[in-house]
Design a protein around this nucleic acid. Structure first.
Lengths: 137, 137
DNA sequence: CTTACTGCAAAATCTTTGCAACATC
DNA sequence: GATGTTGCAAAGATTTTGCAGTAAG
């Protein structure tokens, strides 16, 4: 939450209870949460909160890089919080759904390189490997 | 188109001019096209065609594995035709939504290698880079 | 006090679906 | 002819935005 308060200060925004509850709830969530779900969670503590406030707070977090929007094709935008200790990628077992995380600096470098050739400047990426884990192979 | 005709036959569906134009146009498209864009293209040949028909035809193609639905976060579902000659990855501009494709064998190798260390056997993967293109940097 | 924030409700987007007219088989 | 298909328009589902009231600095 420190980082969130700093963000508000840096941008000259006001620190409100709504924003606090939304951000706090979001950062404590480990899954990919939708606005509707987040709203529901936050309302347990602050029933009078509105959808638009959640929407706008998440937009703020997304714009500032503290959250990432993701689309899984179910018609709802979901938000994932950005790990403070560097990012990681996922490898998912298509049989038992086990998810392992990994980080490979070499791959990241090659991504940068490839992007540069295409004239792009990469800010973030998404890499997911799908296959069988050792138990299911 | 042969494969499309076979699909219709296999499922006992009727072969109509609309379906033909939509599928043909889609298969000849190399970019990730949205329904709106596809409709516009098809209308150049068949002005009286409706959005719903395009929608339903693309749903058919998607269900049958001839097209892949993709969400790049710009609020529009886009369709990509399944490459017969191997896959590619994407790099997306977060400002103008331009999408470029690339393929880097070295990255694929590193993915395999990394997966092996974790005891996984990779079948497929998804790699998307997000950033600014040369025009928006 | 001034300026920003919130909630509500309305607007804007996209995606799906019901149905009568119409085209295949 | 029977059955599937099309186009239109309406319904759904989400995401955005305008605005008057409210609260933070």
């Amino acid at each position: 939450m420190d980082i969130f308060n700093k963000l508000l200060e840096r941008k000259g925004l006001k620190s409100t209870q709504q924003r606090y509850f939304i951000a706090d709830t979001f950062f404590k969530t480990s899954t990919h949460i939708s606005l509707e779900e987040l709203l529901k969670k936050v309302r347990r503590k602050t029933p009078r909160i509105g959808y638009a406030t959640v929407y706008r707070t998440m937009k703020l977090l997304t714009d500032e890089g503290l959250a990432i929007e993701r689309q899984f094709g179910d018609g709802q935008t979901r938000f994932e919080n950005v790990p403070e200790d560097g990012h990681h990628d996922h490898i998912i077992c298509i049989k038992c759904s086990k998810i392992a995380e990994f980080h490979n600096e070499k791959i990241e470098e090659l991504q940068e390189e490839t992007a540069k050739k295409l004239g792009f400047k990469v800010l973030r990426h998404k890499l997911e490997l799908y296959g069988y884990c050792s138990d299911c192979a």
